[in-house]
Structure formats: structure tokens, C-alpha cells
Design a protein around this nucleic acid. Structure first.
Lengths: 332, 332
DNA sequence: CTAAAGCCTGCAACCGGTTGCATGTCAATG
DNA sequence: CATTGACATGCAACCGGTTGCAGGCTTTAG
């Protein structure tokens, strides 16, 4: 029976109950092979009986291992992240790690502040789509093992979702459909993914002889996409590739406001495939590997914690175009 | 200049640099009013110059305050939770608290395990839509301040989103439209919200003289909703109220598969308003107060940590029906 | 001018574990 | 039978702060 004590259970009471030294109790938990099986059993029994559970904080203080990691994302509410967070969290769980979650709100200052708050209590951190400067990232990485997701900084272990491949497929797809002038609706300037997508769009459009314009949406959101439509139509393009699905969804709404039919008069492609087929028309988009990315980043971090090998790791996941109904007509 | 030292900075070095005792350094940070302004400045300068930052773990060990709270949800990827998590996290942030995030995966065992893992490192916990038994919740609440979201256990501080009010409005709305037989598509059996919604649906349907059937979807998800459609149509009802928007969205898909038009032949109402107007037709649903709930729960918890007053708090947020196009025709 | 009252600051114990080293026991070995 | 070594356990220092208490110095009151 676990008695409802006032939380006063320390290693000392267990030691007394089992008739051994405090150190033996400690070892019974952490290195039982050092003790005789008989002693281990006696200690464990006493602990069980008292309802003792080792104090994680005290342990962390003397060993330096907290069993915690931190994960910082720009916006939890952006549907790209929850599956990633979930995957990371479950992976951490398998190794009995706890994860701190931070929301930087797309703000480098806030992100910096969060890192500072977390760093003293974790063994390592993961920054997803970090908005920090390379310099700050390097500074933090010097303090603690650090893994990046969707951010490419030399020498820092990173997991990258290569949306370039999917975007190239998207451009080719649009070209095949006869579009000759497209627009890329950009996301946050500090976003690595955005740079990558913009570059891929421009590059492959040029190669295929398409004209391409860039329109900025700054913050990736439904509203930003909706507002960007004025600028988009002003370019005279006949199709848009948006930084992400949320933006694309906003664009769809903006086009509907103007009675421009999709895909008839205008084609739209998203990125990240976070909406499933839930939009109307269902969104053609670039597939997402966020679950794998979250899982990979976490296990990479744990691996780094084990072997202090500071190898330069760059793990890339490629993507593909998922064709739905915002580029090609349905039911025709 | 912050030198790139090996993390060896302790209170001791600062004490030496400033020419004071360790205790004075400690006080300079925690209770400057106890020291002469001159000393405080000297210590802070030295600390600044060395790049010293107090060790949170050591501090937690002696004070018992970790500055951490834990938040456990059944499924991060369920769009109901991210805004709630985000709100909670930002509220914690305002008080310099760090938040551990746990994903119970809808599994009581897992939830229990997570609580156990977190409890040693946090000052308090928040369980959102807990799947634990009342008994377990009480046991945990006895150890640490604990706030529930969408779970009503006597004596445990709780924040409840009263979807009952919105569901009643939904039933009235359907009755007004002429529906005489509706079905409630249920969610997880252990979910308080589910019980509440089912009860409200049944009760107000009876009062208005509608026939009501219950169909189970068990796990709230798109797929579950889609699969439930067979059972739904089998009842002969002409409208459904789903446990949540995800389920409702699945139902829309299932109905489309069967070429049943919405809202013409069948009416659908969701709950939680997590999809905005993104479905097609846009979903009539019950509004959600998850952001407020997250924020309220966190600040309630922090408040409890301050004043050890074990009052019985029950904070209720009411909801309303948001009428869109899955119940009444659009463009007519 | 002396005593009482503050105000600062340092000492040392403490939070609850972990771990290097020393000690003691017992069996294997020469 | 004495020596060596393996093994099990205890001692005490340490992780990096916090805090009750006491002492020294200055200020205020008598």
C-alpha cells in the first residue's frame, strides 16, 4: 500500500528500512550489478513498500543527466507541427525522456529566450524551423547538443525535408497543364523551407521556360494567403504555388471571393499536405514528411547524447507532388 | 564578452570575482533587497561579465520550485488541442514557467506513466480531456496541484468548456429545419465532453420531440467518422451531430461516397469549430473556447501554486452554435 | 557617551541523490 | 597456512545553489 505521506520520502528512509547505507540504495536503482542480488531485492522491496521514487532533480544535479529535451517550434497551431511534435514526443517517450515544448511565435527574440530558459534543464534541444540567425544557433549548439529541423547550418546536425523535389514536380505539373506564368507566394523570410521552395520554383520554372513572379505573404496563414490574392492576380499569372497549405487555403478563399474558379481559371498548389483532402476543391500539394522528421530528429539527438561524436550530420527526406483538384479539373 | 567556457560557471566563481560570499551572490539574484545596492551591483556586474546564469536544477533542489508545469493531452495532432497548448504555453511563459508536454495517445496507462515521469520535475500539472479514472486523478491531485480541462471531478480545480449549451442550440436548429430523427455520433467513452454532448443531444431532442439514436465512433478521427456513416444511414435519421469536427468531416466524406447530398438530403453538425470554414460544404458546428480554456487552466494553476488555498474551483465556458452550410443550403 | 536597534554579510547546514575510495569478508591459489 | 584478489558495502565528499542564524558595524535614542 502506498501511504499518503507528505512527500518526505528520501533515500535515507529507504536505507534505514532496508538496513543499508544510502549509497547502497542509490546503487540498487542505478547499478544493481554492483550489489549482491540479495541486497538489491531487500532495497527494492523496502522502496516499493514505502512507495519511494528517486528524486529526479537531485539525481540531475549530481549526474548532469536530466532526462529532458526541449523542442521549440515557431507556431504549434500551424498544422505542420503537431504531427511532428507528436512523433518526437513519442520517440522521446520510448527512452523515458521528457520533452519541454516551446512556441517561439515566429519571433527570434522569443526563441532565444526560450532556449535560455530551457537550456539549464535539458540534455539537448531540437529547433524546428528555427527563426534564429546562424550565429545564435551556433552559439547555442556550443552549449548543448542541438538538432535542427528544416534549417541547414553547416556543422550542426540537421534533419531536412527537401520540399525542393516536390516543388519541382509541381512546376513541371503546371507546365504540362499549359501554364506559362506562375507565381510563388512566399512565406517567412527567415524560413529555410521558404528559401528552398522559392529557389526550386524559380529555377525549374526558368528551365521550363515559364515566367515566375514572387509575392510575399510573410506569415504563413489563412488570412495572409487571402490577402495576397490581390497581388497574385495583379501579376497576370494563371497558377500559384504557395509556401504552405494554410496560405494556399487562404488563396482559395480569396479567389472564391473574386469569383475566379479553381482549377478552371486558376491553378493552386500548396505545400506540406496538412489539410488532407479537406479543402474544396481538394488541394494539390507537396507531400510532407513531418512525422518522420520529428522522429528522426529526436532519435538523432538521443544518439548524440550517447556517443559524443560531433559528426556533421545532414539527414534529408525528399518529397513529392500529390495531385488533387486545385490544378486539374475533377469530375470531367 | 561571454567567453566560451566549459560550462563550469558556478556561484563560487562569481563570489570570488566579486569578492563576496556565495550566499551574497545567491541573494543578489533572489533577494536583492537584503543587500546593499552597492553589493548587488558588484555581484551582478561580475556575473554579467563572466556570463553566469544560475543553475535551475540546483535551485530547484533546495527550494522545491522548479518553475515547470506539465500539460498532458490525449492527442496533440487533434486540432482541438494545438491552440489550447499554445495558449497555455504562452501564459506559462509570461510567468517564466517552462511546460512539459505529454501525449497520452488516448491511453489511460500511458497518461499515468507520463504523470509519473513528470511529477518529480514540476510544480503542478494540467490534464486536458483526461482519460484517467476519477480515482487516479484524485491520487495524482493529492501529490501536486492539478488542474483539469474538460473533466469534471468534484474537489479538483477544473476548467470546463460547456458544449452542452451549443449542442442544445444545434438540436433546436435542426428541429426548426424540420428534422424529426437525428443521430449523435459519439466519441471516446471516457471523455467527459462526449458524455456531456450526448446527454445534451438526447435531452433536448426528447424535449423537442425528436427521435435520437446514438452511433459510436470510439476514436475521434476522420476515418472513424467516415466508417460510422454506414451505421448512421442505417438508423434512418436525417441529420447527425458529431462528437467533434474531425468526425464530422469524416462523415461528410462518407456521405459524399454514397452520393448523399449535404445539406439537401442530410444535415451535419460538428463540435469544436477547429476547421474554420475549410470543409465543403462549410461545417455547421459548435464554437470552441479552447484558447481561453488553455489560458485559464494555466493561470489557475499558477494561482494555486501561489496561494495554497484548496478551494473547489469550477470554471465554466459556454458555447454557441455556429451555423454554416452543412445544415442549411447555401446560395439559394 | 552608552545602549538598543537595524542593516549587511558571512558561516555552515541543508536539499537528495551519486560516486571514488577505503575497508572488510571470503574464497581461490601457491 | 598465509597471500592475493574479487566482491560487496559503507564513508564522505560533491553537484550548485538556498537560508537560518550569528556577528560586526553603523545609526538612533536615552
Amino acid at each position: 500500500m502506498v501511504s499518503e505521506q507528505k512527500q518526505k520520502l528520501t533515500i535515507k528512509q529507504v536505507a534505514e528500512a532496508a538496513g543499508v547505507a544510502r549509497s547502497s540504495v542509490s546503487r540498487a536503482f542505478t547499478r544493481p550489478e554492483m550489489l549482491s542480488p540479495e541486497t538489491v531485492r531487500r532495497v527494492l522491496d523496502a522502496a516499493e513498500q514505502l512507495g519511494y521514487v528517486p528524486n529526479q532533480t537531485a539525481r540531475a544535479l549530481s549526474t548532469g543527466r536530466h532526462g529532458n529535451v526541449a523542442l521549440i517550434v515557431p507556431d504549434i497551431a500551424n498544422p505542420f507541427f503537431p504531427p511532428l511534435i507528436r512523433a518526437a514526443q513519442m520517440e522521446a517517450d520510448r527512452s523515458n525522456f521528457c520533452v519541454f515544448l516551446g512556441n517561439s511565435d515566429e519571433d527570434p527574440k522569443q526563441e532565444d529566450k526560450l532556449v535560455g530558459r530551457f537550456v539549464g534543464q535539458v540534455e539537448g534541444l531540437i529547433l524546428a524551423s528555427s527563426r534564429l540567425s546562424d550565429e545564435r544557433i551556433r552559439a547555442h549548439a556550443a552549449q548543448r547538443p542541438l538538432v535542427l529541423i528544416n534549417r541547414d547550418v553547416d556543422g550542426i546536425p540537421r534533419v531536412l525535408i527537401d520540399s525542393g523535389s516536390g516543388v519541382r514536380e509541381a512546376v513541371a505539373h503546371l507546365a504540362e497543364l499549359g501554364h506559362q506564368h506562375i507565381v510563388y507566394v512566399a512565406g517567412p523570410a527567415t524560413s529555410w523551407s521558404n528559401k528552398q521552395r522559392r529557389f526550386a520554383a524559380r529555377k525549374s520554372a526558368e528551365r521550363l521556360g515559364l515566367k515566375v513572379d514572387i509575392v510575399a505573404a510573410i506569415v504563413p496563414s489563412y488570412d495572409a494567403g487571402r490577402e495576397a490574392v490581390a497581388a497574385i492576380t495583379a501579376t497576370g499569372a494563371t497558377a500559384a504555388i504557395a509556401f504552405d497549405d494554410l496560405t494556399a487555403q487562404g488563396i482559395l478563399a480569396g479567389l472564391a471571393d473574386r469569383n475566379i474558379s479553381v482549377p478552371g481559371q486558376f491553378g493552386v498548389v500548396g505545400c506540406d499536405d496538412v489539410l488532407g483532402a479537406a479543402t474544396y476543391p481538394s488541394l494539390t500539394t507537396v507531400s510532407n514528411r513531418s512525422v518522420e522528421a520529428g522522429k528522426a530528429a529526436l532519435s538523432l539527438l538521443l544518439e548524440l547524447l550517447q556517443s559524443q561524436s560531433p559528426r556533421d550530420i545532414r539527414y534529408v527526406l525528399d518529397t513529392h507532388l500529390v495531385v488533387r483538384n486545385t490544378t486539374v479539373g475533377h469530375k470531367e
